[in-house]
C-alpha cells in the first residue's frame, strides 16, 4: 500500500515559483508540475495559501481618492503641447529669413555709404582742406622750396 511506500516528495517549491503560480504567470508544463507537487506537499500548499490570503487582503484595502477633483487644477496648468511634426526643408529656410534680411540690409547700407563717399570721385576732399594738417600753416614762410612745394606735392600727390 501507499502507506508503506509513500511517494517521494520533491524538494519544496521556491517562493518565486509559488508567487508566479498564484499570478498564473507560469508556463503550462511548470504549472502542471507545481500543481502535482502541491497536492502532496502540505508545507508548500500552506505557503501558497498564505500568499493567496495576503493578495486577497491587499485587494480589500480601501481605495483612497483625492479630496478634490484635480481636473480643473491640472487643466489650468497645462502648457501648450509641443507638436512632434518634423520641420520641412522650406520651414528650415523660413526660420533663417529674418537673419538673411538683416544681413542683406547691412551690406546694402555699407555699399550705399561707400558709394556716397568714394563712388563718384568728385567727393574727394580738396587739397586745401587737408592742408590744415601740414607742419607749415597756410600763409607761413617757406624755409626752402622743398619744404613747401616738393614735400607738399609728394604728400598729396595732386599738385605737381
Amino acid at each position: 500500500m501507499s502507506d508503506l511506500h509513500p511517494p517521494p516528495i520533491a524538494p519544496h517549491v521556491t517562493d518565486d515559483e509559488l508567487s508566479a503560480y498564484l499570478d498564473a504567470e507560469l508556463a503550462a508544463p511548470a504549472r502542471q508540475q507545481l500543481a502535482a507537487h502541491l497536492s502532496v506537499c502540505p508545507r508548500c500548499a500552506d505557503r501558497l495559501s498564505a500568499f493567496a490570503d495576503l493578495a486577497a487582503d491587499l485587494g480589500r484595502l480601501p481605495s483612497v481618492a483625492p479630496e478634490v477633483d484635480l481636473t480643473g487644477v491640472i487643466l489650468g496648468r497645462l502648457p501648450p503641447i509641443v507638436s512632434p511634426s518634423r520641420p520641412t526643408f522650406w520651414a528650415g529656410w523660413r526660420a533663417l529669413l529674418p537673419v538673411g534680411i538683416g544681413a542683406t540690409a547691412s551690406v546694402a547700407l555699407g555699399l550705399a555709404l561707400g558709394a556716397a563717399l568714394f563712388g563718384t570721385g568728385a567727393a574727394l576732399p580738396g587739397v586745401a582742406a587737408m592742408q590744415v594738417f601740414d607742419p607749415l600753416p597756410p600763409g607761413s614762410l617757406c624755409l626752402g622750396v622743398d619744404s613747401c612745394y616738393t614735400r607738399h606735392a609728394n604728400l598729396t600727390g595732386v599738385i605737381r
Partner: peptide, 26 residues
C-alpha cells in the same frame, strides 16, 4: 490629447486620478 485636445486629456485625468493618487499615497 496628443493632437492638442484638452478635453480629451481632462477625461484621462478624471479616469485615472483616483487610482494614481491612491498608488502614490500608499
Amino acid at each position: 490629447a496628443r493632437g492638442g485636445d484638452r478635453q480629451a486629456f481632462a477625461s484621462l485625468v478624471r479616469r485615472h486620478q483616483a487610482r494614481l493618487f491612491n498608488f502614490l499615497l500608499r
